[in-house]
Nucleic acid binder design. Structure first.
Length: 426
DNA sequence: TCTGGGGTCCTAGGACCC
DNA sequence: TCTGGGGTCCTAGGACCC
């Protein structure tokens, strides 16, 4: 029988910070988004205080201080490294690990014994990860991915389960679906909840009891897929995506934003550079890019504008100079010199990604691709040893104006030798 | 004044072809 | 006044996820 496990790290970013601040165990902790903008992770204690996901920091800053909440800027080097450690331990427990996000992975448990044995196996996994990394993990086990996600939420909710919940029998499935809010089901978002409620659907059980033909008619094949999965029929397989289909690098600018072309261009050059590095890391090339920049949608007092421009390459590429100059050219061609807009966010997306080894050449291509590739390889080697952007294109510049604000950042405990934790000498 | 970032999938509609 | 039909491909936009 097909059987899926879903391992989910509890309040992952907060848990990462706590590993290096054990004094914060049992205390409220929050982690902020870039620029210290919103709350993006909360410990259970912070959730209990009523703090919401996505809440703007400035609105609750005073309250947090009064209530003694520990506040951290996001530290993605730390979270990425902790994630790799957790995933590496998880991979010991399954032949196929499907990493779904920074803090979640599906495990293929098919044919690995009965569910009693698997339950014990998974509890051992949870203990191993807690011991090896300090990160608490919840595991759900079920015959479909959607039910496994549901099970993991039960595992998180009831401490008696010791981090593992299993939905295997028909009876357990009914029991699990009955009280489960429809909006908490994987694949049912805000908009669908609204429509579901008009039909009197409030729980997963309400939805699962509908006729499949009706579900397909009202909610398309995505809705039908979720319906099947809730009824124990697996539609979403374990996969190990070899390549991303799009890569995006974007940032909000601190404070009010930027209005000078040169500043936005510098930022765009750096976003494009990051995209090309990510492309080369997965050994792929892109066929087109998009450059975008827009003003803050929250500001009603200023004029809004949105720049959005695609560029297509005749020959797919991952070359830094080529993509940076295309991105900057696109930005310049869309820039309105008659208006001073205040741009709050910008980014670069690369699309039409294919394998670097299978590039279709162009008859009229005038560029010596092998020389360009050799140059990129040399640049990557130098930057790998000395840090990103040690070697950079001139347009990337050194201005700090568009750089992130983070006033509460923890140290690079696990990735920078100069910032590792120090123990007091006795 | 201050409001994140990075992805996937599906669909509707237009362009184009025969 | 009458003005094809069917297929494919591409793109933009909207839904979802973490």
């Amino acid at each position: 029988m097909e059987l899926f496990g879903l391992a989910d790290c509890n309040n992952f970013f907060c848990s990462c910070e706590r590993v290096f601040h054990p004094d914060l165990n049992g205390k409220p902790v929050v982690v902020l988004s870039n620029n210290d903008g919103c709350i993006i992770a909360r410990s259970n204690e912070a959730k209990a205080l009523g703090l919401k996901m996505g809440q703007p920091f400035y609105q609750v800053k005073d309250q947090l201080e009064k209530q003694g909440v520990a506040v951290f800027s996001s530290n993605y080097n730390l979270y990425g490294d902790m994630s790799r450690r957790v995933m590496s331990l998880l991979s010991r427990y399954t032949p196929h690990l499907d990493i779904y996000s920074i803090d979640e992975a599906f495990l293929d448990f098919s044919g690995m014994g009965n569910t009693d044995q698997l339950g014990e196996y998974a509890r051992d996994m949870v203990r191993t990860i807690a011991k090896g990394t300090g990160i608490p993990v919840s595991v759900g086990i079920a015959p479909t991915k959607t039910l496994a996600k549901m099970a993991s939420k039960y595992a998180k909710k009831y401490p008696d389960y010791h981090g593992v919940a299993i939905i295997d029998t028909l009876e357990k499935r009914h029991k699990a679906l009955e009280p489960f809010p429809i909006g908490d089901v994987w694949g049912i978002g805000r908009n669908l909840v609204k429509r579901m409620e008009q039909f009197g659907i409030h729980t997963a059980a309400d939805f699962a009891a509908k006729k499949p033909s009706w579900v397909q008619h009202e909610f398309n094949i995505t809705g039908l897929r979720t319906w099947k999965e809730l009824n124990g029929q697996s539609c979403i397989q374990i996969e190990t995506l070899p390549q991303k289909q799009s890569i995006c690098t974007s940032r909000s600018f601190p404070d009010a934003g930027l209005c000078e072309l040169e500043q936005v261009e510098q930022a765009v050059a750096n976003f494009a550079t990051a995209c090309t590095r990510k492309l080369r890391e997965q050994h792929s090339v892109c066929g087109s890019i998009t450059v975008f920049a827009y003003t803050s949608r929250f500001r009603t007092d200023i004029e809004q504008n949105c720049i959005y421009r695609n560029v297509y390459f005749q020959v797919p590429t991952s070359n830094q100079q080529e993509i940076v100059s295309a991105a900057c050219g696109a930005l310049r061609s869309e820039w309105d010199t008659n208006h001073r807009y205040l741009y709050k966010k910008a980014g670069v997306i690369v699309w039409n990604i294919s394998d670097a080894g299978s590039v279709q050449g162009d008859l009229f291509d005038t560029v010596d691709r092998s020389r360009m590739e050799a140059l990129m390889k040399a640049v990557d080697n130098i930057n790998h040893k000395n840090g990103h952007d040690t070697l950079r294109t001139a347009v990337q510049g050194y201005s700090q104006q568009w750089h992130l604000k983070n006033e509460h950042k923890s140290r690079q405990y696990t990735t920078n030798l100069e910032q590792i934790i120090t123990l007091k000498a006795l």
